[in-house]
Nucleic acid binder design. Structure first.
Ligand SMILES: [Zn+2]
Ligand SMILES: [Zn+2]
Ligand SMILES: [Zn+2]
Ligand SMILES: [Zn+2]
Lengths: 163, 163
DNA sequence: TTGCTAATGTTATAATGTTGCAAATTCCGC
DNA sequence: GCGGAATTTGCAACATTATAACATTAGCAA
């Protein structure tokens, strides 16, 4: 599975993307879902960017492709990809990022660097379980959990004095 | 301090609102910040609603007030109120809710009912500390944490079969 | 008063996301 | 292959959320 869990370090990102697409094809097959060309292209674009892409960013690249797409095309593709856990929407950014744990069930949490914009998705079982306990104490039944942490990544924090 | 921590039960909400406004005045005085009529009115409106209000919802009520306001007026007031911790923005809803722990430093987390729309803000130290540990393991320095849990509140979960 | 700063008004526009329906494509049983 | 159902896409218009830019006013102090 594609686990470029460290976007901080340079690496052969084309390989990440290729792996993510391969994974996506497998996952869609398993669910009898159709990873159509548009959907695959959108997933590819999102993966190619290390930073979350807005829907209209995707739209712009599709336009460069020569694909005369309108917003619904992109949003529909994104809905599909989210549905199968291939991308996540970052609510605090109105943007989308490729899931680095696609296929595995996971409780994602996002570390978003204010300086460089990179996003790291991690699975934090301790956070997740503490959160579910807290919800249970209120007799609340969670269906969907959003955890987004804005701050400074190691590289940017050391670069200079942000605080 | 205004702690209508249980929006589930009926109660004298006007008292909550009055208390929240009184607290806000105190907090602003302490910071030499001006809680102008517009800002105070926006805070009041947000508190009066048990459910998070969108900026344009606020705008609509201001219009009913006879206040001929434009979007920037509302967004500025909301920015101010956020700055002093009097309201929170719920990213997953694009809406604002009164802070039930204004003045105290707190790591909020929001339980959002999909059915009735009520929002409960809680302080969950266990979640917060687990989260900071997870971030620290990645050498990430958190500045702002968003935790929003969508699901079913006790009342709505028992009402009928959501699952 | 005068001058400075914070706050507000005003207009326009940007950015993000949705609805509704028609056309095309794909799937599937025949 | 063929025909009908279901899914997917194209397309136009629209709705919602948020900001930019600049003029004006209110608060405050020398
Ligand atoms: Zn994920
Ligand atoms: Zn960074
Ligand atoms: Zn709060
Ligand atoms: Zn409820």
């Amino acid at each position: 599975m594609s686990s470029s869990a460290l976007p901080y370090r340079p690496h052969n990102h084309q390989a990440c993307v290729a792996q993510a697409l391969a994974d996506a094809r497998t996952i869609c097959q398993q669910h009898n879902a159709r990873l159509t060309p548009t959907r695959e292209r959108v997933l590819e674009l999102i993966w190619q960017s290390h930073k979350p892409l807005g829907a209209y960013d995707v739209l712009a690249v599709l336009a460069e492709d020569g694909h005369n797409a309108a917003p619904p095309t992109v949003y529909r593709a994104l809905d599909f990809l989210q549905q199968y856990g291939l991308v996540h929407r970052i609510a605090s950014l109105n943007a989308f990022t490729g899931c680095t744990h696609a296929g595995k069930s996971h409780n994602g949490m996002f570390l978003i660097c204010r300086s460089c914009g990179n996003v790291l998705e991690l699975t934090a079982p301790a956070v997740s379980s503490a959160l579910h306990r807290a919800a249970a104490e209120e007799s609340f039944r969670p269906e969907d959990v959003t955890i987004e942490v804005s701050g400074y990544c190691p590289r940017c924090a050391s670069d200079d004095a942000h605080g």
